[in-house]
Design a binder for these strands. Structure first.
Ligand code: SF4
Ligand code: SF4
Lengths: 134, 134
DNA sequence: TTGTACGGGACAAAAAAGGTCTTATTGGAG
DNA sequence: CTCCAATAAGACCTTTTTTGTCCCGTACAA
């Protein structure tokens, strides 16, 4: 449908929340989920991914929670989206050469490449710093 | 998944085929499907939509088939895609105000608006004339 | 050692994608 | 006027993806 999934949107919401907290503050998942209106168990899964990729750092046990893995200005929207949704590819044939047998001669192929480039440029130019409501 | 569906890609293939034929030539669905490597019955559905929207003109019975409903230079990729996939909306909240209750204060919302604008600009600037293999 | 909070995996309902099948309808040619 | 060619329309179907939930394990602090 050429549209981001809820997972992607929820992921961004969660990260924006963390970015809007005091630096190094550890936030409870339940707080993040409530404030950003995201199903908590779903967000848990998303943050597990982020923890593995290093985008967030998690702490278990009492007093545990999540905080950003890096300064907000070093985390782009593109990285968040691609971590949960996979690479931004507006059409199958952009993923890799040969996936569509027609790609070599196809006149439409370059257009999708341009769309991809443009999207990546926009998303990579926006960081959590920009998004954190002040 | 932020990706065009096969339906959308097939739709484009079919239209590019028509655009690369002599003007006013009526092409058989079976020929289009074979040449462009698209499941014929699926393409039939797509072209029915196009016929209703006026993007193609169909002729039934012996000697029937399809041709473009307008000159190739007046049909953009954007129009083709939006006819089969619906409006280009990179996130739900772009469809209409109020779909996401957070849209008014959301700092991410404007970014998706920009993504939408950029995609629509690229796709509307490409016409079937540009895509028809010479 | 107990309660809190995240980690990981299995599970599942609902929606969307990707087609197929059958039965009209229409129009041309004999 | 009758057959055949070709699209129209709609019902139907299967597979994949999305959108979550549940349960149990593990870590950690008081
Ligand atoms: S745009 Fe061209 S190359 Fe890409 S999937 Fe479609 S036909 Fe293949
Ligand atoms: S980007 Fe903001 S407004 Fe749009 S759906 Fe996400 S939270 Fe809502």
């Amino acid at each position: 449908m050429l549209q981001i999934s809820r997972k992607g949107d929820y992921a961004i919401r969660g990260m924006v929340y963390l970015a809007s907290q005091p630096v190094d503050k550890v936030s409870l998942l339940s707080d993040i989920a409530a404030k950003m209106e995201v199903p908590q168990t779903f967000l848990a899964k998303i943050f597990q991914q982020f923890n593995k990729s290093g985008l967030v750092k998690s702490y278990r046990g009492a007093g545990g929670g999540f905080k950003l893995g890096r300064p907000a200005e070093n985390i782009s929207l593109l990285e968040i989206v691609e971590t949960v949704e996979g690479p931004i590819v507006p059409n199958r044939c952009i993923m890799a050469a040969g996936i569509c047998s027609r790609d070599i001669s196809c006149t439409v192929h370059p257009v999708w490449k341009e769309v991809q480039k443009s999207m990546r440029e926009i998303l990579s130019s926006v960081t959590l710093k920009h998004l954190a409501g002040r």
